[in-house]
Amino acid sequence: MPVLLKVEGIKKHFKTPGGTLHAVDGVSFELERGKTIGIVGESGCGKSTLGRAVINLIPATGGKVLFKGKDITAFKGKNLHSLRKDMQMIFQDPFSSLNPRMTVSEIIREPIVEHKIKTGNREIEEEINILMETVGLASRLYHAYPHELDGGRRQRIGIARALALNPDFIVCDEPVSALDVSIQSQILNLMQDLQEEKKIAYMFITHDLSVVRHMSDDIAVMYLGVVVEKCSVDKLFQSQLHPYTKALLSSIPSTDLDFKKSRIILKGEITSPINPGDECRFAARCNYATDKCFKETPVLRDIGGYHYVACHYAENLQKGDSA
């Protein structure tokens, strides 16, 4: 499969009165057509900002995003407008991402008309009906308003709207975290079916590790604007190496009563992303931190077999001794 998207050292900094906030600080990854990369992290780690910067919804401060070989960070005006046909986004909150004064059909029609996907009223109507059927919205909801629908159906509208342009790449920013479990699985199944059928690549942003495991091929774990570990799903869940990833995985409450795990409780909370110094950003909370960690920023490096870790002591951790 050819590489569809190549992100190279993308950065997004915000100016604040207290200094420069490094929301995303040099993130790189590649994504093939029809595959999913999961972006995991806690609130404030920059995962949503990354998603927005990748599709140029907000301009990146630095780095490149090569989409089908072209650097789209420089796109403006008309180019950017037509880029939206290839890149779409599904938002977290189906309650605030839909215009409350538009009906279901109007919401889905808007991108079709805007990008002239179909012309002629009958073709447009037909397309809307096909899209509604694809995402499992009953045709009686054609004239319904978003407030009349439950969260799951609203999220289906959001998906239909993104699909209307037949994109190759969709950024999904916490698409199921506002939904109940029984509805969540319906939406996840739908997204997987669509991926298989249309070969869409997903960037799946979430804080829910069980969801990301189900959906992704590769996973990148973010902490304070940087990727601390990146590898295939199976590797991450079986032989994760970064101390943060270990703590994160051990924190998930399990429904399996027999599964006794040693929980790693992290000290303190996420530190400030404003003006970070030359240190490992996780050092202050890390159980293995040494002087070196407070003096030198570890770089994300491949320790073998497509397993990237940003930790000075990745090899030691791999061998099982403490750093």
Partner: peptide, 10 residues
């Protein structure tokens, strides 16, 4: 967040 959740639950 999950890591904070773990602290609070404990």
């Amino acid at each position: 967040d999950v890591t904070i959740q773990a602290q609070i639950l404990e």
